[in-house]
């Protein structure tokens, strides 16, 4: 989503230029991300170099030099990335959401927004990195409690050992770095989605944030995840973000024929009954896209046995 923000080594020619490039590279590594920024907290965990920076009224969480979460310091419910708001669209298909499972914590944008806009919901969050939980608690107003539980472990391991069923499962478990984003392969295979579906209720919905676009940057990964989800869920819908290169894929356990009239009626129901108090809900719904990505047929189905998410699909095009 923020690959454009990655620093690029300056172009240089000749031997001295080459040396300058190398030195610039070292400087970029050692001063992650910018020396002039107001660094609030810095730590290195088993998974990431974690940095919390305050700048121009905004707090940013970065993993390995790549932004994970943004939050307005004046109002923690503002300033987040647009794509997280698409994690409210599952309410169109299920108006009785009370138990939510979220894989990936980051700075807790979604947890914070859900607590504010859907206060009756209980969220279990699974985060693999204990340091991320500490940082989210100390610097991003993320508080655990009876409605916000956190489990420090791998998301797939959690699902495998859990007997709970959820109305909604949200996935935002990307790792991002200077070379772009990487999708954890074990959270993108048919076996994984099958496991997730087994933990959904009859009206359950799964929403999956994929970094990529429909026909350009990382279109192959979007197509592959779509195709893989479609083998497990009867319906898969797309919500491409408008401000960043994110697409939220929504899979539903129940097959529902989505028409413009249905969307309109459901949006009104959700808003009028006050189920989701997010002011931009209707606007986010309008990003709905019924058509599957054009490249689906060419994209490989991802399985535990074959998931070339780093190489074949990692091509930036």
């Amino acid at each position: 989503m923020n690959d454009a923000l990655s620093p690029v080594a300056p172009r240089a020619s000749g031997r001295a230029g080459f040396r300058r490039t190398i030195l610039a590279g070292f400087a970029a590594f050692s001063l992650t991300p910018q020396p002039f920024a107001g660094v609030v907290h810095e730590t290195t965990s088993a998974y990431h170099h974690i940095l919390v920076v305050d700048q121009r009224g905004r707090r940013t969480l970065s993993f390995d030099g790549s932004e994970e979460t943004r939050m307005s310091l004046a109002n923690p419910l503002q300033g987040h990335f647009e794509y997280v708001e698409y994690f409210f669209t599952p309410w169109l298909w299920n108006t009785n959401i009370s138990n939510v499972l979220m894989l990936g914590l980051g700075g807790g944008s979604i947890q914070r927004l859900y607590a504010a806009h859907c206060p009756t919901v209980t969220i279990d969050t699974v985060e693999v990195d204990a340091a991320v939980q500490r940082v989210a608690g100390q610097y991003f107003n993320f508080n655990t409690g009876p409605r916000q539980r956190v489990f420090v472990q791998d998301g797939r391991m959690f699902l495998r050992r859990s007997n709970a069923r959820y109305d909604l499962i949200l996935l935002d478990a990307y790792t991002r770095g200077r070379y772009g984003s990487a999708i954890p392969h074990h959270l993108a295979t048919r076996e994984f989605f099958t496991l997730a579906r087994e933990h959904l209720t009859a009206d359950g919905v799964l929403a999956y944030n994929v970094i990529g676009t429909l026909n350009g940057y990382r279109a192959d990964i979007v197509g592959s995840v779509y195709r893989t989800m479609k083998t497990v869920f009867p319906e898969v819908h797309l919500f491409p973000a408008t401000e960043s290169l994110n697409i939220v894929l929504v899979g539903t356990v129940r097959p529902v024929q989505v028409t413009p009239a249905w969307l309109k009626e459901r949006t009104e129901t959700v808003v009028n009954r006050g189920l989701v108090k997010l002011p931009t809900f209707a606007q986010r719904v309008s990003a709905f896209r019924a058509m599957p990505p054009a490249n689906v047929e060419r994209c490989p189905l991802l399985t535990d046995d074959f998931a070339p998410v780093d190489g074949l699909l990692g091509n930036t095009r």
Binding site: Q153, D154, P184, H186
Partner: peptide
Amino acid sequence: ARYLASEFGGSF
């Protein structure tokens, strides 16, 4: 390492 990840997750 790839093979084990589908059983033990993607942990470090």
